[in-house]
Design a protein around this nucleic acid. Structure first.
Lengths: 164, 164
DNA sequence: TATTGTTATACTCTATAACTATA
DNA sequence: TATAGTTATAGAGTATAACAATA
């Protein structure tokens, strides 16, 4: 149906509707775009991820944070925020949610009372291992059309994107 | 500093802090993950995109919509929403914004008064061509470390991701 | 009955600015 | 002065549910 604000139904007289080919340059062709191809691959990868882990899972971003805490040996919030490319302020809620889930703790740091050392709880460690196994399955699923050699090469080529 | 809700400073006695290696499985290693590599490449590509087009540009998503309208020959909102992977309801605002910028029009469809044919305005066509040139530069920038053959192969390999 | 577009509403993720405690 | 964490607030992008007009 019609509209109020949006569809101000301008109804232009299509007297001289420009032909796409009649003027100077090509319109944007997404099929030629590496950026678009990467984005689409990422969307498909996320779809597989959520299909295989269900809607109640940690998001990839939180899983990444959890993984970095697991590896990071008492990393603090500011450093983690920097690694994740978000602000300290945004980091707070991510950490809150992982703590509320019982996966991590903010531990006091002896030498510096301003900051916390982020550490996995036993449950967090257990969950992270469970996710590691799940992610291995997921990787297999969305790499199904790639040979191992192709997968390796894809990883290598991706490292080179966006470094100019 | 300390906290109110978030930092409930649980201060667990670290008597028997589990050693990462002492139990059954590996923690999640992001460096092995194709999904993570794709996401990181996409983040870097977006960074190049915004660096080269400035903060006042169309977002990649809106540019994609504009491109599909340019190519799509009177596509309607529902069909476009489906191609973009968003709901019809969300599509409304995207279309509104492109229309407010004077880039597209909702044209009446003779046979069906429920839907609109989305078409570029002359300004929209012009802008899309300008973006096509800009995107060509951007693609060059974030492909700088890839040979043309590598770039082609990367595009081909990306097509195979997430199809299981 | 089904489809198209729309609105109202809410949720997630993110940011900026200002603040407190501590260094 | 600088740093770590926090809060309040806002904006973008998305979703669901309910609706009117039209098919």
């Amino acid at each position: 149906m019609a509209a109020s604000r949006s569809a101000s139904r301008v109804n232009v007289a299509p007297l001289r509707r420009a032909d796409p080919a009649e003027d100077d340059g090509p319109l944007l062709d997404l099929q030629d775009s590496l950026g678009y191809a990467i984005k689409q691959a990422q969307v498909r990868a996320y779809a597989v991820f959520f299909r295989m882990l269900g809607p109640d899972t940690l998001t990839p971003a939180r899983m990444t944070a959890l993984s970095m805490i697991g590896t990071g040996k008492g990393i603090n919030q500011s450093a983690l925020a920097e690694r994740l490319g978000i602000t300290r302020a945004s980091m707070v809620k991510v950490i809150d949610s992982l703590q509320d889930l019982g996966l991590i703790l903010r531990e006091e740091v002896p030498g510096d009372r301003r900051s916390y050392a982020l550490v996995l709880t036993p449950k967090g460690r257990q969950e992270l291992k469970r996710y590691a196994r799940k992610v291995a399955e997921i990787e297999k699923a969305y790499s199904a059309r790639l040979t191992p050699a192709e997968r390796r090469q894809l990883m290598q080529l991706l490292q080179k994107v966006g470094i100019d």
